[in-house]
């Protein structure tokens, strides 16, 4: 097991390096000077050159990359061009908010999705299966940003039950787990939960249907085991894969929250990314993408390792 863990870690190193390269290249294919957005159009050449030197944009690309990744290893992602604040602080704060939202959404999605998948797989090819499958297809097909708008239209604009945007009094700075804040989370979390719900429902349905068709289930039935007893056996077989899918989905939601956060003005990484893009704040853009991608890599690693530890059938290579 330790050896497996070690191998898996070693394998992650080139991926992380590749991710850093992609982040760097991605941001530097942007046309125009990186300071265009902050400098007035009539700024003197001297000032421009001076600022370029301060931010290190005057060096060659390989040199910039080495300096950036070297500092990133020490937790310093540079300085935002737009706000002059350290990128690391901005990203950390935003990641916390997004993580909170994405975790809640994943839990909602997992519970609903597992339930739908189980009943669909158990009552295969009945109307229950068809109805549950329809819900899961809707889950993966709905443009979530639109669903967010529709929920705002229903619950904020029409019924006035929940706030349409923001993170409550004092913004994200004074977040507490009180109703005044939590109510801001409900709509974005439900919107976000729809995607993992659909995917987990589909996965669980296929797994349950496959396991129910296996011989040992027939054997258990012949032995006289009750439905609930058989259910226990099915759960044990489905759980590792379902949990793995859930972990990966959490990663997808972390990275894919930008559209939902834009709709709800939720102060997370998505909103940060949005402002970085439109203010052409390259250090911030680069840092945010890097952190999100590394989160995703780490999550995948954790899922892999956990799955191997939990499920003795998974081969340890």
């Amino acid at each position: 097991m330790l050896l497996y863990l070690f191998k898996r870690l070693i394998y992650t190193i080139p991926i992380v390096l590749g991710v850093a390269v992609v982040c760097f290249v991605l941001v530097h294919i942007a046309p125009g000077s990186p300071l265009d957005s902050v400098l007035p159009p009539d700024a003197s050449q001297d000032l421009k050159a001076q600022l370029m030197a301060i931010y290190g944009f005057d060096r060659s690309y390989p040199e910039q990359f080495l300096r950036w990744s070297g500092r990133a290893l020490q937790g310093d992602l540079g300085t935002s061009v737009a706000t002059s604040r350290p990128v690391t602080a901005e990203v950390t704060r935003a990641v916390g908010n997004t993580l909170m939202l994405a975790a809640l959404a994943t839990v909602i999605g997992f519970v609903l999705g597992a339930f739908l998948g189980f009943i669909a797989g158990t009552f295969r090819d009945t109307w229950i299966d068809k109805a549950a499958s329809l819900v899961s297809v809707i889950g993966v097909s709905v443009p979530h940003y639109w669903l967010g708008m529709v929920l705002v239209i229903i619950f904020s604009a029409t019924l006035g039950w929940l706030p349409p945007t923001g993170a409550g009094p004092g913004g994200s700075g004074d977040w507490t787990w009180e109703w005044a804040h939590v109510r801001h989370m409900i709509l974005p979390a439900i919107t976000m939960s729809v995607i993992p719900m659909g995917i987990i429902a589909r996965t669980v349905r296929a797994l349950v249907a496959e396991i129910m068709g296996q011989e040992f289930i027939a054997g258990l039935k012949a032995k006289g085991l009750t439905r609930i007893g058989i259910f226990g056996h099915v759960v044990k077989n489905v759980a590792p894969t379902a949990l793995a899918v859930m972990g990966v989905q959490l990663g997808y939601l972390l990275g894919g929250s930008i559209l939902i956060e834009t709709v709800f003005a939720w102060p997370g990484t998505g909103l940060l990314l949005n402002s970085a893009i439109f203010q052409r704040d390259l250090p911030l853009l680069q840092g945010t993408i890097l952190v999100l991608a590394l989160f995703f890599v780490a999550l995948n690693l954790a899922v892999d390792v956990l799955q191997t530890a939990l499920d003795p059938r998974v081969e340890r290579r």
């Binding site: 390269v21 992609v22 046309p31 894919g256 893009i277 991608a293």
Partner: peptide
């Protein structure tokens, strides 16, 4: 594999955000 380290939404938005 390196590209798989990016959630698809993030990659799409980051790319077109950088390109304009």
């Amino acid at each position: 594999d390196v590209f798989f380290a990016f959630p698809s939404v993030l990659l799409a938005i980051a790319l077109s955000g950088a390109l304009g």
